[in-house]
Design a protein around this nucleic acid. Structure first.
Lengths: 228, 228
DNA sequence: GTCTATAGAACGATAGAC
DNA sequence: GTCTATCGTTCTATAGAC
């Protein structure tokens, strides 16, 4: 809150914790490494945050708040642009995936550090996960669920829930991974090219969301030749 | 390898390690909890596997080998069924995602334990990740990349690499998460219903893979109204 | 092949001086 | 607000008896 010349201890602790939690996860990171990296010590971390778990939540809350604001602002924009009814699905998706991907790529850690942390969240213990998802992410989740509901009127509620699950899974799965794309493309695609990621990701997600419905019966394995 | 009456120590250690690594990750799980859960002790784990890291790799290798065989068998089947040229994309995808999802759901831990472990892999330290992906998963990756290349002749190599990245990210992201689908559907969708997951996932992935190409220039954010 | 016992290091947390 | 020092616990790994 207060403005100190270069960076205050609290901020240095958050920055260092972000790097270590991203690289090694909640259990893999240690307060000793974090505090020494922040040019501070164990006692400082406990003074400012109380516990390792509270530090973790603080790290995420600091990043998620501006991202949520940007996501909602862009959704407002998209919805008011389309004063007529049909809100373009691609624009909703870009408002959803763009802010976290961009923020993740440009944060303090330098490169793709925060992105890894976002990708890790879904594997962290349920206690941590719930504090984030039911807290800072709650409104964003509800607003975008409603927007997708309007953009995809033909899907049942169950189908839409499955597909939102897939959309979030794709985004976080992509955020979590730093090696796979390079491996799959023999080094020709660059995962740190965020604009490229968004330009490829949005049409993929839109295509998946708009896909023909799942067959209600066809043994699921021999789904066979349909469309195109 | 040897057949002992109920289960030998080595197998009990693998089973217990699978549960703990899935639930808490590599760093979060401890050999003490694992060995006591397996009715054994620290020394037994080191005798059979050498180190915690080797135990982790052994846990994954045990599961991945039969899954890889099943994936490749089903891909062979699909390709020979389609003696004519166009192999149905949905069938290739079902051969890719079905075996790990089914195996993950029916393994020792009872429920979705192994699935969580698969989902975690992409966040584990690179040293662990590489030992799996460059080892037991190598041939599977190459064979399916070739199959998708043939099924989607209109995509450039770069676009295909991006989209395979998204497909794997979606699958592992979905595997990693146990809470999100229930939250998004207010409890109406069941993530442990594997047939349902596959029936929903395959059309989503096919729709994404077949989507219109990404716009090469349009500010990426205002992708605007196109198609449908 | 399985055990007990323990070495040796790292962990989160806290007390108390400044 | 930041530090040093330390408590009490837990960790992986290993030595050596059986």
């Amino acid at each position: 809150m207060t403005r100190s010349a270069p960076t205050d201890t609290r901020t240095r602790l958050l920055d260092a914790a972000e790097r270590h939690f991203a690289e090694r996860g909640f259990d893999g990171a240690s307060l000793r490494q974090i505090t020494s990296d922040a040019r501070a010590n164990l006692a400082a971390a406990h003074y400012h945050f109380g516990s390792k778990e509270d530090l973790f939540v603080a790290v995420l809350a600091r990043r998620i708040e501006p991202i949520s604001r940007e996501r909602l602002d862009r959704l407002d924009q998209v919805e008011s642009d389309a004063a007529g009814e049909p809100v373009p699905l691609e624009a909703v998706l870009a408002a959803f995936v763009g802010p976290p991907l961009r923020a993740g790529a440009s944060a303090s850690g330098g490169r793709e550090c925060l992105l890894r942390l976002f990708g890790r969240m879904q594997s962290e213990p349920e206690a941590l996960w719930k504090r984030i998802v039911d807290g800072p992410l709650r409104e964003t989740r509800k607003r975008f669920a409603a927007a997708l509901r309007r953009a995809l009127p033909r899907l049942t509620d169950e189908e839409l829930a499955w597909r939102m699950h897939f959309v979030i899974g794709t985004m976080t799965g992509v955020a979590a991974d730093q090696h796979r794309l390079r491996l799959l493309s023999n080094g020709r695609c660059d995962p740190s090219d965020i604009d490229g990621t968004i330009r490829q990701l949005v049409p993929f997600l839109a295509g998946g969301l708009r896909a023909a419905k799942a067959p209600s019966r066809s043994s699921a394995t021999a789904a066979g030749r349909r469309q195109r």
